[in-house]
């Protein structure tokens, strides 16, 4: 019994230690940002591996989410004779919620886990230590470019997801289910507000990008330098990022869309 309590205390302690480490890490990383801007090559390479390589899954998911939304939305709305409002349903769901959140989750799964594994492997093969001994700060050279790349990519990917999703909904709703084309766009345009919906959605995706990339990069840097340690860190990245994205989504939604 006592052992259990002690164990609980120890994990509580280590939780706070990790929290503290991750915040100190964040400060060091932010301090390294100016040096990245001086070497755009590094940033571009990372934007490619983090952003461009995530495009396929984002586009495909966006299309399917939009199409499914249109299908489900139509089925429900048609009972109320309100199928002309399909555009509104699809657009608001995607722009406000599904765009930022699903992109955040997919990003954490694809780009986040890749980042953790890559950095973790560099730590396990002593490349980070080697850099330190060569008087090159690995946080400035390896971590910071990846962080900025993630932070920039997320809102772009979320916007692409939303746009593709709305057109996916158009394809199913107007193309397959016979909703009036004019009604689809017109109702959407009158109900979707640039500031309340689109802008807030973008803010959400920026926040998610920040947090998901931070978690991915930190887990890689903090990993136990064995192959088992790296695989566990990679799993942790995906799980913690998912928690963070969903939790922050709730908080942000309450702040933005509550009264």
């Amino acid at each position: 019994m006592l052992e259990w309590i002690r164990g609980l205390g120890r994990s509580g302690f280590s939780f706070f230690q990790t929290l503290g480490r991750s915040n100190l890490f964040l400060l060091k990383m932010l301090a390294g940002i100016p040096s990245v801007l001086v070497r755009p090559r590094l940033l571009i390479a990372q934007l490619f591996s983090v952003g461009v390589l995530s495009l396929p899954i984002i586009v495909v998911s966006g299309a399917f989410v939009g199409m499914v939304l249109a299908l489900q939305g139509y089925n429900t709305l048609v009972d109320f004779g309100a199928e002309e409002s399909l555009g509104v349903v699809v657009a608001l769901s995607i722009v406000r919620e599904l765009g930022p959140v699903v992109t955040g989750l997919l990003f954490a799964g694809r780009a986040g886990s890749a980042l953790t594994a890559e950095i973790g492997l560099m730590k396990a093969t002593e490349q980070l230590a080697g850099m330190e001994m060569m008087a090159v700060d690995p946080i400035h050279r390896v971590i910071a470019p990846r962080f900025i790349a993630g932070f920039i990519s997320m809102p772009l990917l979320a916007a692409i997801f939303s746009a593709v999703g709305i057109y996916g909904g158009y394809f199913v709703g107007v193309g397959l289910l016979g909703v009036d084309e004019g009604a689809y766009w017109a109702q959407m345009q009158s109900k979707v507000d640039l500031y309340d919906d689109v802008y807030n959605g973008v803010i959400k995706s920026v926040v998610f990008g920040f947090v998901a990339t931070w978690i991915a990069v930190f887990e890689g840097y903090d990993t136990v330098p064995t192959s088992e340690g790296v695989s566990r860190s990679t799993t942790r990245t995906v799980v913690y990022s998912a928690f963070a994205v969903l939790g922050l989504d709730f908080v942000l939604t309450a702040l933005m869309f509550g009264d």
Partner: peptide
């Protein structure tokens, strides 16, 4: 410290080359 490290070379067990 970084200034000092520039005057020291280190050979790691695995070589630690950047892959």
């Amino acid at each position: 410290l970084y200034g000092l490290r520039r005057r020291i070379g280190m050979l790691f067990q695995s070589g630690a080359l950047l892959t």
